[in-house]
Amino acid sequence: MHRLGGVGLAAFERQIESQRSFAELSSELSKAQVDHLHSQLTQFRTALSHFAATHRDSIRRDPAFRHAFQQMCSSIGVDPLAGPRKGGWWAEMLGLGDWQYELGVQIVDVCVSTRERNGGVIEMSELVRVVSKLRGVSSGVITEDDVIRSIKTLQPLGAGYEVIDVGGGKKMVRSVMKELDEDQAVVLSEAQSEGGRIVEDILVSRRGWARERARAALENMLLRDGLCWLDEQDESTGRSYWVPSAMRWDE
């Protein structure tokens, strides 16, 4: 009987020898790959930095361009806010990390200062409007997209800032640690189309809710969450609810 590799001590040595060779070869191969990858990354990074540096002003000023750039970054898996330095790569290249944080601070400012009248829920366009007013004209236009992104950077703070989709393309920003259930989202969106006023009848007729469900949702928002105000002098129903966050205020 003749087995491959033979028998005896020599066979063991031969096996060890070949294992060693394979290991060497494999580490050589992976080293080459890593080197290649490194050089590719460096190249990519240089190109991206170059791009960012050349278009720095456009990125900071033009919301559409900024959005496109951010989309490009996310589609190639680059998180502009991640990086070795504080503020990340954006901060290094563009000072955009600071820009993003600065916007975050302004958002918090607006949310907190309007909380008294809206119970901690503010409509997105209203938020954008007030933040823009706060920033003045010179610092450029901001968009919903910027606000959403900034709110995401606020999430690690655990203050409960969250963007809620209430349907119909309307978004609201919640700045209190309260869960909004689905019914409340519906109430918010209906109130919005009514300029802030909402009554049981609207929910019953437009959404097909049972009267009890409508009443419970409204009373919860009123009594438990402080998200709406009561009007006992309503001409048609005698009792209506008003959602401050869905109301348009002129200062």
Partner: peptide, 22 residues
Amino acid sequence: PSIHSVPPFFTEQPNPTTQSQN
């Protein structure tokens, strides 16, 4: 102020926080 043209401003609020703001 603009709040003076908001109907519920003229109603006492059952929620204590809202009432104190009112």
